[in-house]
């Protein structure tokens, strides 16, 4: 029996007159990896950012581990410590060393002592294979290393769920594998994960469920083998054709 860990129901979000999310329902079970795919501008990032309230939803309900985040009285800062987020552009604190990137929120938010915070930080740096970079500044690292540090930073807060927004899209192709490797390892360890990605291979191999979004709705969802391997909807098929074989379709290709 799997336990529902993230429950999103009837989620709506608009920017001014632009309706980006028009009623989204998603459930993520504890320990599952859910991959969200879809064309650019379909609202994938917006959906993910609503899950930790970086964007304020206009309607609907978001419950994470029994806490309703959309309740106006919720302590959102506290809730966010349990929700790790990894951004496309890494967003490491540029004025802090790698180690301090990992300890600052532990100390200021979780009120951990210096020593404990450092131990946790080093343990997580080791997990992503970058223990020797503890004293480097972010600008001295490659994109792939920065993203792995960003993952370690999120993990240092001991989150219960991790959100990834196209974590490899800003990376040189040869660096993508390192980051996906870390994510795969996390998934194997049983982390609950919500991943926006264009890496179909990763989704196929790691995801328990794939969601295809377009035009503010979920068009199709199910096991990776079905949604990616044997899509039922025409829009899903068009999208996958384009992603899996980009050279055969120009940017102006009709849907």
């Amino acid at each position: 029996m799997s336990e529902v860990f993230v429950e999103i129901s009837g989620l709506k979000k608009s920017f001014g007159t632009l309706d980006v999310l028009k009623g989204i329902d998603v459930t993520v079970n504890r320990g599952d990896v859910v991959c969200i795919i879809g064309p650019s501008g379909s609202g994938k990032s917006t959906l993910l950012r609503c899950v930790n309230l970086l964007e304020e939803p206009n309607g609907g309900k978001i419950v994470v581990n029994g806490v309703e985040l959309t309740d106006p009285d919720v302590d959102i800062d506290k809730a966010r410590t349990k929700i790790g987020m990894v951004f496309q552009s890494f967003n490491l604190f540029s004025h802090l060393s790698v180690l301090n990137n990992l300890t600052v929120a532990q100390r200021k938010v979780l009120k951990r002592g210096e020593k404990e915070a450092q131990q946790v930080a080093l343990r997580n740096l080791e997990r992503v294979g970058l223990k020797e970079k503890a004293n480097a500044m972010p600008a001295q690292l490659s994109g792939g290393q920065q993203q792995r540090v960003a993952i370690a930073r999120a993990l240092s807060m001991d989150p219960e769920v991790m959100l990834f927004d196209e974590p490899t899209s800003a990376l040189d192709p040869e660096l993508v594998g390192d980051v996906l490797g870390v994510m795969r390892q996390l998934a194997d360890e049983g982390m609950t994960m919500l991943v926006v990605t264009h890496e179909m291979q990763f989704a196929r191999e790691v995801a328990d469920k794939v969601i295809f979004m377009d035009g503010g709705y979920i068009v199709e969802e199910g096991p990776a083998a079905e949604v990616i391997g044997n899509p039922q909807e025409e829009r899903t098929r068009t999208f996958l054709r384009r992603v899996l074989d980009p050279t055969h379709h120009g940017p102006g290709d009709p849907e």
């Binding site: 966010r80 410590t81 790790g84 951004f87 967003n91 604190f93 929120a105 938010v109 960003a150 999120a154």
Partner: peptide, 12 residues
């Protein structure tokens, strides 16, 4: 992005 990263770590 720096602010969003900080907020996502639970900083007020």
């Amino acid at each position: 992005g720096q602010i969003e990263a900080a907020r996502s770590l639970g900083m007020s």
